[in-house]
Design a protein around this nucleic acid. Structure first.
Lengths: 252, 252
DNA sequence: TTAATAGTGTCTGTAAGACAATATTGC
DNA sequence: GCAATATTGTCTTACAGACACTATTAA
């Protein structure tokens, strides 16, 4: 026991003094990129891995931290940019995943981020380590989440690594945040003007349940219009019934 | 080895294939260990660093991940055990800090955790990399947080690395969680039985503001007693005024 | 008795949710 | 006119907070 303790001690000393002498884990920044399609359904960007491990499996985009050259937040932004050509959107750290064996190669610590992106700004292109990149519609099933691509449908178990866990956490977090943060607007920021019904539909998508329009409207007027976060444009738009009033994000 | 198509591509390939050829960051698990003292004031365990960098400065306990031997959660638990001889308490991941230059040596990614511990279970002993370890009372000041030790008082700026930021985030998170999670009980779990006033005082400490006892009581009865999480022992305890009823955590 | 603490009751304002009723458009 | 959608209004319930009031102990 004593002996073991002094071994420990030397290891710690050397580690803090010259960390390069010791095995270090790899660190990746992985990004759950969410958007809404034309029907206001929730979509996620997945890439098809071009390299081992999990070559050929779908995964969320991510890549190794360029240690010394960038912060972990910058690594996440770089991954987002690489995959979608987007800068400057909602991008927040989600959680860090570091179970043993989550990567079959070696110890990989994955710092996961969530990005909320207006679809119109997406310019999808597979990064160097991917053979394909696609948007998938997210649907819920008794067995979990299904991902509907244009020509493929995959389930949670098909995803590489523990990415299904990461995605589930991202969706849960978004659901919990949407009531008291302005996240929904980040998903539609390209839409200059919008109606209450449109915003309600987005909330319904994220929460995966239907909402009462009169009550939603009441809360919207109280929390966004009365507080000045959103302004009434005075304009209306006509679709099938009574014209709806158009609102817009207030200037900042 | 593949043909060189672009520097980026080759870099990525090698990184994913043989990550040891590339510079990796060091990863640490750091733990904000919080407890309450006899006066129900919030305290934090800080260690005095015995090694460079920041040798001699106070810091939260932490250490390098033993890559391949433990998960990041296990590393945090190990750090907690090393410093306090405690296992099996509230220990949750807080946030991951990975700014450039947060450690002067090299890139260090720090996965921070929060531990809530009953003081009676604390058995403080400096780890191998520390020359001292002490509890400090947390006090708020116009300039930030002050830490009162038995014979030292330090301020946020005296802390090593970005540990003041980590501590502030831990306290903020605890404050936001205490209303809808049962965290407060984890800070007093050794106290078998407790009165409503005692629990209220803990909430006041964490929120750093005074609460109304009748209203606190109402919420306590509704959220804890009526739901069965806490049982009324039927006993009372006398101090200075009317005897107070004793409650206890329900058996699990 | 008084001081101190515990506990009860009441009132107000606000928010969530169910849902009825009305308004304005295209057809 | 009718169907569809938007908007307004009403009612109930729940919770937060302020605060008056009562209860029970020690000294």
């Amino acid at each position: 026991m004593k002996q073991r303790r002094s071994n420990e001690k030397e290891k710690d000393f050397l580690k803090s003094y010259d960390a390069s002498k010791f095995e270090r884990p790899s660190v990746t920044a992985d990004v759950v990129i969410l958007t809404l399609d034309e029907s206001d359904e929730l979509c996620i960007l997945l890439i098809k891995r071009g390299e081992h491990p999990f070559r050929g499996s779908w995964a969320i985009p991510g890549g190794f931290l360029h240690a010394g050259e960038e912060s972990i937040d910058e690594a996440a932004a770089r991954e987002l940019r690489t995959e979608t050509n987007i800068d400057d959107v909602y991008l927040k750290q989600l959680y860090t995943f570091g179970s043993l064996g989550r990567d079959p190669r070696t110890t990989v610590i994955s710092v996961a981020y969530t990005a909320l992106v207006p679809k119109s700004r997406l310019d999808i292109r597979p990064g160097d380590d991917a053979s394909d990149a696609k948007l998938f519609r997210i649907k819920y099933d008794v067995n979990g989440i299904l991902f509907f691509g244009e020509d493929v449908t995959i389930s949670e178990e098909d995803l590489a690594f523990d990415h299904s866990e990461i995605i589930r956490m991202a969706i849960t977090r978004l659901r919990n945040r949407i009531d008291y943060e302005d996240d929904a607007f980040n998903l539609l920021r390209d839409r200059e003007e919008f109606t209450i019904s449109e915003l309600k539909r987005i909330h319904e998508t994220i929460k995966n349940r239907s909402l009462d329009l009169p009550n939603f409207r009441k809360a919207f007027l109280r929390d966004y219009v009365a507080t000045g976060k959103v302004t009434d444009t005075g304009k209306t738009v006509i679709s099938k019934g009574k014209p709806a009033r158009l609102y817009a994000l207030a200037e900042r």
